[in-house]
Amino acid sequence: MKVAIASGKGGTGKTTVATCLAHLLPAHGQPTTYVDCDVEEPNGHIFLGPRIERSENVSIPIPVIDHELCTNCGNCCEICRFNALACLPKKVMVFPSLCHGCGGCALVCPEGAITEMPRAIGVVERGSAGDLGFLQGRLAVGEALATPVVRAVKRAVPERGIVILDAPPGTSCPVVETIRGVDWVVMVTEPTPFGLNDLKLAVGAVRKLGLTTSIVINRSDVGDSGVEDYCKEEGLDVILKIPHSRTVAEAYARGEMPVLAVPGYADMLEKLADAVLTRMREAEKR
């Protein structure tokens, strides 16, 4: 059972909900893994405090030109959509930082002058936080390609048990890669025009991928009714409303999980845990 916690807008409480939910699930007798797919700024580890046991490099293949074999035909530059190759009158140059590692240049080279060399762009780290399995991707500083790192993290996800995927904000490629193929997407949003605008975009992306989604409204007692009205109109299930609380914000600022630091918070999040477990049982029946 794979559940992605996404949002559209950043700062709505994705990581708070994802870490708290993941923390509660092992006590229900289900092996659970928390997976931080927000590889540009993974921060779930701050709250879960995992012990990292293994770290593996994530690489993309970049072209290396054999200038002895190269005839300067220009095919490689023509196929490259990212302008990572420059075909000059007398030589071909490679710009590794622009390369997306698609391998197109090596395929079209008629002389076999292009070989590929791995270039590390990030890491996948595995470990555990008590009973909870922990997995995160981390994009190296200065790198731009988050999606291959997310893909590598997802390859490392265990097949059994419950997997909670903490998605990056937004609706771009790293988010799509995170939610692709999951069983359920939980959107954490806030009742503001910003939250609503980005929620609409995220719901659009989720529907395009043929996934089902439910909504958690965080800080539900501030802002306006726009998000709830939208959810009603669209038939979206609002499974949890979490009221605004200064003590939650204070716990978060100290790097503590509200389920441990704020009385009553765990009871609210148990509702979400129950919803996950119910869906899991239903899926097993089918």
Binding site: N83, A84, L85, L88, F95, L98
Partner: peptide, 9 residues
């Protein structure tokens, strides 16, 4: 991306 590289070539 790579507008400068493309233009230079």
């Amino acid at each position: 991306s790579g507008a400068g590289v493309q233009a230079a070539a």
